[in-house]
Amino acid sequence: MHDFEYEAPTTVADAVQLLANHNGSARILAGGTDLIDQIRLGRFAPEVVVDVKKIADLQALEISADGLKLGAATPCYRIYGDEAVCRDYSALADATKIIGGAQIQSRASVGGNLCNSGPAADSTPALIALSARAVIAGPGGTREVPVEEFCTGPGKNVLQPGELLTALVMPARPAHSGSHYLRFIPRNEMDIAVVGAGASVVLDAAGETFVSARIALGAVAATPLYAKEASELLAGKPVGDEAIEAAMAASRKIAVPIDDMRGTVEFRKHVTGVLTRRALEKAIARARENAGS
């Protein structure tokens, strides 16, 4: 393994300073479940590794009237271990429960999953479905980016040298809303998504009409996708097969997957529709149980 220096700042300002000083030759360490392997395999050869776990703000998990604020380094187990997250942000709980096994979930963070920017990242479609925004600190201050605009290609994202993802913020969930994330894997555990789908819906009080919906897809393009047309066409439609099938077709239309060792184009396109349906159906069921608090 390549030699590197290790730094563990305790404030965002110090972290940003360190990153800026190394002008692109630093890598950020949160849980390290991707980074350590990438350094070991020679994909990255950073001069310095900046551990951000000791920054208190990056370990936040706060639910308020404004919504959910999730520190970028907050590990998965704390997310799915939080009752309010499980109730109101179910898709995020679903995703963090299936990333790796217990050991990985104790370290790995949703922020790290997003910054690694893999097309098959499990938590990213859940974030997109829940309208999450990425909060980024940098030498020039703080900016926010919708999560669906964060990734720019496999392993690539909008972070500039010196920038650090500090938090993910999601709006409060209204009554009669529900969400779900699921993925297709050939095995039942310890696997990577061949296709992933996240959905959130808001229904009318009767639970019969979509007020709004957001659908997101993973592993079917170079980046996780927000399925805009599929999401928007549901608004105002009665909950039923006709609307869902229209959303399935619209989801399939934007899927531009590749043939690889995990699946074929044919398989991924077909399953994109199947998982769109399954994600919606579970989100709808949850919304119908959720009369609001």
Binding site: R187, N188, E189
Partner: peptide, 10 residues
């Protein structure tokens, strides 16, 4: 990860 042997879950 990608050479998929069955696990106990399967």
């Amino acid at each position: 990860l990608d050479y998929r042997m069955p696990t106990t879950y399967d």
